[in-house]
Structures are given as C-alpha cells and as structure tokens.
Nucleic acid binder design. Structure first.
Lengths: 249, 249
DNA sequence: TTGCTCCTCACGTCACGTGAGGTGGC
DNA sequence: TTGCTCCTCACGTCACGTGAGGTGGC
C-alpha cells in the first residue's frame, strides 16, 4: 500500500494533482491508515496512470471521467479521436514553428504573397524604405478589410510595375516626399499619374479596389491628417481637382 | 482605420483577447473615434500578429511583452529558444500518441518490460487471469516502491519459468485458489515451494527482493486481509511455519 | 425599428500552484 | 530533536470566456 507521495512519484504527477483528482471525483478516495494518511492499492496506480496519460494528451478532466467509466468499445473509439486531435495539434505546432521563424523574416507574415511581392519589387527598383513602409501600412489595413480585393489589386499593381512609365512616376512620387508643396514639379507629376490611369484599360469591377490601392489614397487611410508630408498632401489635392473627369477619388 | 472586430477577425483572435492584451499592456490602447470606439492602425495589426504568433507557440504573455520591446538580437535569440521548445513539445505529443495507443494494449503501460513479459509467460503456460491479476497488482506496488529491484527480480522469475518444477508448482498454486483451506494438498504444495526455493542458489542481495516477489507475499501487500482466498491464506501460513529454516518470511 | 457591433465592469473557468497552520513518522 | 511527509482549508494564477447592462451605427 502506497502513500500519496509514493503514488505521485511513481506515476509522475504532483501530490496536489492527485488530491485534485480526488476532489473532481476522477480517482476514488482510498481508505486511510491509523494516522489519517491515504493508502493506495494497485488499482489506484492503474487508474492514475490512465488519468495522467489522457490529461497529458490534452483531454479535459470531465471527459476523462466519462471515458474511464465507459465500455471498451466507447473507450477505444475515443482513443482514436484523441489520437486524431494529437496529430492535428502536432501539425499546428509545426505550422507555429514556420510562423515564428517568419517573425524575423519581414512582411510575409502580415500580408498576402502578392502584396509582399509588390513591396519587394518597389525596393528592387530603388523606392525608399520610408515610402515602402507607407505602402505596407496601407496594404495591411486594406487586406484587413477586403482580403480578396486586396490580393487581386496587388497582382494588378505588380504587373503595372512592368510598365517603365509606371516605374518612372512611382520613383518621382517617392522623391516628392521631401519636395516643397509649392514645387511646380508636383503639377507635372499629378498630370502624369492621371494620364497613366487613363492609359491603362480598367475593368470597372477592379477600379474601386485599385483606386483604394493608390499610394495617396492608401496613405490617407492609414495615417492621421497632418502626418503625411506636405508635398504628398498637395499632390493628393491636385489629383482630386483634375481627377473628377476620369473618376478619380 | 479598423474597429476592434475587424482587427480581431483579420488577425484571427477574439475581441476579448484584444481587450485582454490592452489590459496587460501588451498592445497599446489606440485612440477612440467620436463614439468611443477603439480605432486601430497598421502598427496595431503588425503588433497583434506578433502577439498571436508568439502566444500560439505557448510563450507566456509576460515574456511576449519583454520580447516585443527587445532589440533584434535578443529577439532572434529568443525565437531560437521558442523553436526548440516547440520542437520538444512536438516530440512530447508524439510520445503521448504512443502512450494513449498503449491504453488499450494492456499492462505494458504500467510496468517495466520484464514484469510484463513475466505476466505474459504466466498466461502462456495456462495460469488463470484471476491469478495473473493478483501478480500484476503486486508487481505494480512493488515497482512503485523499488523500481530497480522489481525489474531485476522479475528477470529472475522470468528465467525461473524455464524450470519445469517451477511451472508445475505455480500451476498448482493457481489451482489452489478454490481449494478448501483444510485440503491436504496444501501441505504438499508448501513443501514443494520451500524445496524449490532451497534448490535455487540465491544471491543474498537478491533474496530480499525475490521474497517480496513471491506471489503469496505480494498478494499480502496488495490486498486487504480477508480479500484473499482462504486456501492461499492457509498456504501462506504453512510456508511461514516451515520457512524459518530457509529464511522465508 | 431591428440586428449587429461596440463599451465597461465583474464574476467564472480550467487545472492545478502555493502558502498557512498543524500533525505524524523515522 | 530535526527534517520530511502528510493533512485540510483557501486564496492565487494564467489566459481569457461569459454574461450583465447599456449605447452607437446601418
């Protein structure tokens, strides 16, 4: 006959856990010896090992109680289910491993692949990190609200990068970050941007998403008023003034 | 700017979890809109995804708080540790799978291999399940208190099963379960058991463990007085009477 | 107007952990 | 006698869940 400590040590649980199982009714209270100590027999060892094994597999104690008093066919049926749950939990953890590895690896964790590709392409053609971050924040918010549309729109933008004119304009837009809002080049840039939009034949269904994906519109979504550079705010203004004709804004 | 529900849905956590992270100081409280609703920006999305990813990997919230505000070298060092923890957790779960599979498979879960082998051998030579269960319970308690000794003693017993005389005596012992305590065959059996012990040369160091491993002694350990069959109690008495000479009891 | 989302307390849950204060066994 | 184990409350912990009661947005 074992004491509670001997039992707990052999099975590999804490004394407190054994008492907890008594309280929950999972393990019957054994007889006491002359000192009031609990004394356990072999059945208690067997039952406690079953409890520990199931609990270790993540089975709630309430479920364990049912299982231990169930028939063998119900029991082995449950074991199959528990095994499935364990297997899928293992898969989850393997997925978690991939994800935490990605925590140091940049944007791909937060964004659909097309968007991350688009941001990487911007970096590749020499766009400043400062501007890429504004794009990124905009896309994150857009993807949060319209996941599918954001993915499609990013694919569209990605292919637009093949157009040398788009690249030239985007580079200018990037450089305009530091310009004076009165800089006359802003007017040329606004004209060029609108011309570009006019040149690309646009599927009307995509037009809305695409407009939202414009860096200027995006940056308006993402930042507080006043936190944008003055030149970009002016550029947005110019586009709105002239863009009515082509449905911009 | 996102509401708390949009944020939670996109990242894949509950609204309550987001509020909990605010309370814990993990995620800064954002500004409110005119209705008092929280409004989130892209930084909140990024930070919440980091929190969720780490929490999903089992990192305590207190640790996550430190990590998010730590430098990149400390962060990536921690990621390595978390990955190790995940890997070992995966191994644990794979071990759990093996164990719950064993829950339907019998005694090997509760006992060292030698003891399970010994019990299987008893079944193989035709010992009744009833007697095997008494043996099993005795071994479980013995293994709980003296794991090494129990393993060695069981190995000893296992090899003793090669002796035809041991098998004959054990079979008779099994049958004696139902005998009348006054049955004269009990005296013969007691003599034969003592003769067998005398015949086997015994390493004195093993003698104590071996005596404890005797079925009769074991069953005394494991059961309450009176729960053993009367014939076995009588047999135990007879062995004690005669066994003093060979150091039995 | 109805249904959905949002807000703030605040208590509940799950599986124990952790003293608090006292007694028995070697 | 000292140190270890045992006993019974009973509150604490961790990461939220779950109403309770009320207001804002479409």
């Amino acid at each position: 006959m074992l004491t509670i400590g001997q039992l707990a040590d052999y099975v590999g649980v804490t004394v407190r856990a054994v008492r907890h199982y008594h309280q929950r009714g999972l393990l019957p209270e054994p007889d006491r010896d002359a000192s009031g100590y609990r004394r356990y027999d072999a059945d208690a060892v067997v039952r406690l090992i079953r409890i520990k094994t199931l609990a270790g597999a993540g089975v709630p104690l309430a479920r364990i109680e049912d299982l231990l008093d169930a028939g063998p066919e119900e029991f082995s049926c449950a074991i199959v289910q528990i095994d499935k749950a364990l297997t899928s939990r293992i898969r989850e953890l393997q997925e978690q491993r991939r994800r935490i590895a990605g925590l140091t690896a940049g944007d791909r964790l937060f964004l659909p692949a097309e968007i991350a590709d688009f941001l990487d392409q911007l970096r590749a053609i020499g766009i400043s990190e400062r501007t890429v971050q504004v794009e990124r924040d905009g896309w994150i918010l857009l993807a949060a609200r319209y996941p599918q549309e954001a993915g499609r729109a990013a694919g569209f933008k990605l292919s637009a990068l093949d157009d040398p004119e788009f690249r030239r304009i985007y580079t200018a837009f990037d450089e305009a970050y530091d310009w004076d809002p009165a800089d006359p080049r802003l007017e040329e840039l606004a004209d060029a941007m609108l011309a570009l939009i006019g040149r690309h034949p646009r599927d009307p269904a995509q037009a809305a998403a695409e407009d939202q994906a414009d860096p200027v519109t995006l940056s308006l979504m993402t930042t507080q008023p006043g936190s944008m550079p003055p030149a970009w705010e002016r550029l947005d203004e110019l586009c709105r003034e002239r863009g009515q004709a082509v449905g911009f804004g």
